[in-house]
Simulated scan of single mutants.
Amino acid sequence: MKHKNAIVLAMFGTTVEPALKGLLNISGRMRARYPETPVRIAFTSNIIRKKWQQRAADPDYIKEHPEIPAEILEVRTVLATIADLQDQGHDTIILQPTHVAMGEEYLDLGTFVDGLMRMGTVKKAKYKPFHKVVLGRPALGTYGVAHPYHEDIMAAATALAADAELARQEKAALVYMGHGNEHFPSSGSYLELAERMRRLHPDVLTLIGNVEGYPALADVTAELRRFGAKKVLLKPCMVVAGDHAVNDMTGPEDDSWKNVLERNGFEVQAAASGLGEIDAFADIFVRNAGEAAADAGIVLR
């Protein structure tokens, strides 16, 4: 029996049009690596999907934004996207998240995979909806012995070399805004990433704070003072420079990171581009999808 493969990129999504560059870069590089394998985008955020549905139904918006591809305007949930592929005859799915760190969304995707693989039939096994459904790793890795997480973190640190170089040229500390999580201990991954970058680039102070959880902006500010930093290059440690970057990081509100840092006496230069726009970082997700397939005995072309 011949099995048909497909890749589904599970993305939180964004409603900020320029931020789509990070997501489309990942999907584009995935398609370039596996030109014979269908690659689909799915958004996990209900709010973001609903916003795109509204825009897709607005003729004026479509006319004003011809650059928005149909796959964004018609974006669906992860399960709906997989169901469409199954209806088209694809029974082998690589579900690759574009999350930076492991958190609740990644664990939710794991339950999807478990549920889909449990679907059976009272007749022959060949009638099962799916042959294999496998889950790839987030950028900073996950638990398990097959792929040590510290190697994933080192790969991410290496991929961000251009950011360190820009901070070096500006004679600034490099401060990333991560999303973080108040319910899962993902902060260790961010802290290790910052440490790896400091070792790779010892002349650049690299720190990562999170919107949610530890370390917070106050922790980053304390470290900047401890090291005597005067200038800061501020960047999102997120795949897209979406709402958090536009508002929480550089927005006009008093509590935006840029304004808080400036009130604390630091000169701030912001670079609002998502990690997905960096080819080397986007390629981490391409690699992780390929390794998830290989681990399951799936050949992607």
Rank of each mutant, 00 (worst) to 15 (best):
Met197Gly: 06
Glu277Lys: 03
Thr111Glu: 09
Asp87Tyr: 12
Leu300Ser: 00
Glu36Arg: 14
Ile41Val: 08
Glu105Asn: 05
Tyr34Phe: 10
Glu212Cys: 15
Asp283Arg: 11
Arg301Val: 15
Ala161Val: 10
Tyr61Pro: 14
Leu174His: 00
Cys237Gly: 14
Asp243Glu: 09
Phe130Ser: 01
Thr142Met: 09
Ser27Asp: 02
Ala155Lys: 08
Ala156Gln: 13
Gly110Asp: 01
Lys230Met: 08
Glu267Asp: 07
Gln54Gly: 11
Val239Arg: 05
Asp203Phe: 06
Arg29Glu: 02
Asp254Cys: 11
Pro202Ile: 10
Gly274Pro: 02
Glu170Ser: 12
Gln86Leu: 04
Val286Ser: 07
Trp52Phe: 04
Met102Pro: 14
Tyr143Ser: 15
Val268Gln: 06
Pro35Met: 10
Asp254His: 11
Trp52Gly: 03
Ser186Trp: 09
Gly178Met: 05
Gly251Lys: 06
Phe12Arg: 03
Gly265His: 08
Gly180Gln: 09
Ile7Cys: 06
Pro138Glu: 03
His244Lys: 06
Glu182Gly: 14
Arg226His: 13
Pro129Cys: 01
Gly141Gln: 05
Ala32Ile: 09
Tyr190Gly: 00
Ala57Glu: 08
Phe43Thr: 07
Val145Thr: 10
Val246Gln: 11
Leu200Ala: 08
His131Ile: 03
Arg118Gly: 10
Val100Asp: 00
Thr158Pro: 02
Gly274Ile: 00
Trp257Tyr: 13
Ala157Trp: 00
Phe285Trp: 09
Ala296Asn: 00
Met197Glu: 03
Asp87Arg: 15
Arg287Trp: 06
Pro185His: 07
Ser45Glu: 02
Gly213Cys: 00
Val133Ile: 04
Asn210Trp: 06
Lys231Trp: 05
Pro59Met: 02
Asp91Trp: 06
Asn5Leu: 09
Gln96Tyr: 09
Thr77Glu: 04
Lys50Ala: 13
Ile62Pro: 12
Ala10Tyr: 04
Thr37Phe: 07
Arg31Ile: 07
Gly242Ala: 11
Glu151Arg: 15
Pro18Trp: 11
Pro18Glu: 05
Val299Arg: 14
Arg49Phe: 04
Val286Asn: 03
Val246Ser: 12
Ala139Ile: 06
Asp279Phe: 07
Arg263Phe: 08
Ala6Asp: 01
Arg137Val: 02
